[in-house]
Nucleic acid binder design. Structure first.
Lengths: 314, 314
DNA sequence: TTGAAAGCGCTAACAT
DNA sequence: ATGTTAGCGCTTTCAA
C-alpha cells in the first residue's frame, strides 16, 4: 500500500499523505520488517564478510575499510569468523548465503571445493581479498604475498646480509604467511643462500613472542645478520630485544617485518616493513560490491619501507 | 513439505526419505532461503552488535568474545559501527532492528531518546556492554569506569605521587573515557589534589601520540611525578619516551594506562594498567542472548595491575 | 510418516 | 496519486 511507497521514497505520493504516513510511523515507533521486504523484492542489503580471525589488528582494519566504504550506501556488513578452519569457513558461508546477500567478501584464495561450489553457484558477487596468488572465482583485490616475500629477500641480499633467519607463526592454514615465506626462500635460493635458521610460535602476546623467539634464534645461531619476521608485531618485539641487548641495528643485524602497522611509528627505531594496504583492500572490495561489478582484479603493489633497520644497498 | 523437516532435523521422517532428501539437496547445491524461513517462523538467528569503532584493539576483542561464545549455537553476529555518532547509532539500530534479530548487543549506556525508544519497543533482548554506570534498558555487562578512575587515583595517591597529569583522547562522545577521568579527578579532589596538567589527542598512531604528548606535558610542567593515560597504547608510548630520556620510572615519575592490552607484556617495563575484561564482556553478553535471559546485570571488577611503573604504597 | 493449505509482511504490477 | 492483488519460499497446522 501507500505506506510502503513513502517509507522507501518511491513513486508518486503527495506531500500531504507522505507527511501523514511519516508522522504515524514515528508515533508508533514502526520499523518495517525487512525480512518480508527482502522476500518480496528478492533484494537483501547485506554484504557478508568472512575473515579468519579478529585477534590481531589486520582483519579489523580490513573490516573498517569495508564498513567505511559502505556508509552512505544501503548496504550493511555482516561478519563471520572462521578461525583459519576450512570446516568453519564452509559453515559460515552456508549461513551467509542462506540470507542471499548482495555480495560476499572472503579473505584468501584457498577454499575447500565445497566452499567454492557454494560460492560460485550462489550467483552472488564474490570478492576474494588480501591475496592475489591464485585463480579467482569472481573478483579479487589484494597483494601478491609471494612477491612481497621475494622483494624483501632481494632488498636484504642487495644490502649485503647473508646469514638470514626467519621467524613466523605456526599456522599451516595461514596461506598468506606461507606464501610470503615461500617467495622469500625462493629468492634467497636464487642467490645461493639458504635460511640460516627459523623459529615459529603460536598464541600469546606477539610482542613478547617476538622477543623470546629472537633471543632463542640468536642464542642458537649467533652469526645471523638478518631476521625476517612474518608480521610487524613480532618484529617490533625483536627490535626492542635487539636494542636492549645493545646490538648495532642495522649494521650488526638487520630486521624486517610485514604489514605496515601504525604502531611502528612510535617505536624507538622504524622497523622495515611492507604495507599490506589492509584498509584500502577493504574499501576497494566494498566498492566492487556496492557498484555491482564482477570479474574485477585489483593487485596492490606495496613497496618495502626500509625504515632504520636495513642498511643501504651496496 | 517433508524437505523442510529433514533439513531442520524436525519431527518424524523415515530414514529412507531423509537420506533421499539429503542427497538431492547436496547434488543440487541447495541452500535454503532463510529469508522465507524467518518470515514464516518469525525467528531470526542473527545477533546485532553495535560498536563505536574498529580502529583500536578494544572492540575487536569484544567482538571476538561474542563470536566465540556464539560458535555452536545457531546464532550469528551482525555488526554495525557508529563512529561515536548518535545519529549513526540510530541509523544502524534501525537497520538492525528491521531484521528482527534474536538480540542486540550495544556498546555503552548513553543513547539518544530515539535510540532507546526503538530498542525498548522492539521487544528484542538488549544487552548494553562495557559500562555499567547508568540505567540499563534490559541487561548490562561491563565495568564501572568511574570506579576504575577512582581506584587508580587512590592507588597513585597512596604511593605518594602528588603532581599528577592526565593524558587522553579528544573525544567528547567517548563516555567511558570521560567517566574514568571524572572518577579519577573526583578521587584526587577528595585528597585535596587537582590535576597538575592535561593533554589530549585525536587520530594518528596512539603509540606515537603517547610519546609526543608526554614530551609536551613534561616540558610544560616539569615537576609532574605521575602520568595517567586514558589507554594503554598512549601509555606505552609515554613509557618508551620516559625510558629513553632516562627518567627513573617509577621513582622520578610513575605511569598508568587502562585496558590491559596484551601488547604491554612485551614492553621493556610492565606498564601499570587495569584489565577492562573486553573478551569476557563479549562472551557474557553473547551468553545472555544465547540463553534468552533478560534483565541480567553483570559488573566485572577489574583490579589495578601495578606492573613496574607505580612504586609501592607507603 | 507424509501431504496439503494457509499464511508470515512485505513489494511489484496492475488497476482505478 | 492511491488502492488492489498476487506472490516471494518457507514454516506451521491440520488432515490423511
Amino acid at each position: 500500500m501507500t505506506v510502503s511507497r513513502v517509507l522507501r521514497d518511491r513513486g508518486d505520493v503527495s506531500e500531504a499523505t507522505r507527511a501523514k504516513v511519516r508522522a504515524a510511523a514515528r508515533a508508533l515507533g514502526y520499523v518495517p520488517n525487512r525480512i518480508a521486504g527482502a522476500l518480496a523484492s528478492q533484494r537483501v542489503n547485506l554484504v557478508s564478510v568472512v575473515i579468519p580471525s579478529l585477534s590481531n589488528m589486520v582483519f579489523p582494519e580490513v573490516l573498517s575499510g569495508i564498513s567505511d566504504r559502505l556508509v552512505g550506501t544501503p548496504l550493511q556488513p555482516v561478519m563471520g569468523v572462521t578461525d583459519y578452519s576450512d570446516e568453519r569457513e564452509e559453515g559460515v558461508l552456508y549461513e551467509m548465503l542462506s540470507w542471499r546477500p548482495s555480495g560476499v567478501i572472503v579473505a584468501g584464495m584457498e577454499h575447500s571445493p565445497a566452499a567454492r561450489a557454494m560460492l560460485v553457484n550462489s550467483g552472488v558477487p564474490i570478492v576474494e581479498i588480501m591475496d592475489v596468488d591464485g585463480e579467482p572465482m569472481d573478483s579479487v583485490v589484494g597483494i601478491s604475498h609471494r612477491r612481497a616475500g621475494r622483494e624483501t629477500a632481494e632488498a636484504i641480499i642487495a644490502s649485503g646480509y647473508r646469514r638470514i633467519g626467519f621467524l613466523g607463526t605456526k599456522m599451516p592454514y595461514d596461506h598468506r604467511a606461507r606464501k610470503r615465506m615461500e617467495g622469500f626462500e625462493k629468492a634467497l635460493a636464487e642467490s645461493g643462500i639458504t635460511l640460516a635458521d627459523r623459529e615459529f610460535y603460536s598464541g600469546g602476546s606477539a610482542l613478547l613472542k617476538g622477543r623470546e623467539m629472537t633471543e632463542a634464534i640468536m642464542n642458537r645461531t649467533p652469526d645471523i645478520d638478518f631476521l625476517y619476521y612474518s608480521n610487524d608485531m613480532i618484529g617490533a618485539g625483536g627490535l626492542l630485544w635487539c636494542l636492549e641487548k645493545g646490538f648495532d641495528v642495522p649494521n650488526r643485524i638487520g630486521l624486517a617485518g610485514f604489514n605496515g602497522v601504525e604502531l611502528l611509528q612510535g617505536l624507538p627505531r622504524r622497523l622495515a616493513t611492507m604495507d599490506a594496504g589492509r584498509r584500502e583492500i577493504g574499501e576497494k572490495a566494498a566498492e566492487i560490491i556496492a557498484t555491482g561489478l564482477s570479474g574485477v582484479r585489483i593487485e596492490l603493489t606495496p613497496k618495502l619501507l626500509r625504515g632504520d633497520t636495513i642498511r643501504p644497498a651496496r
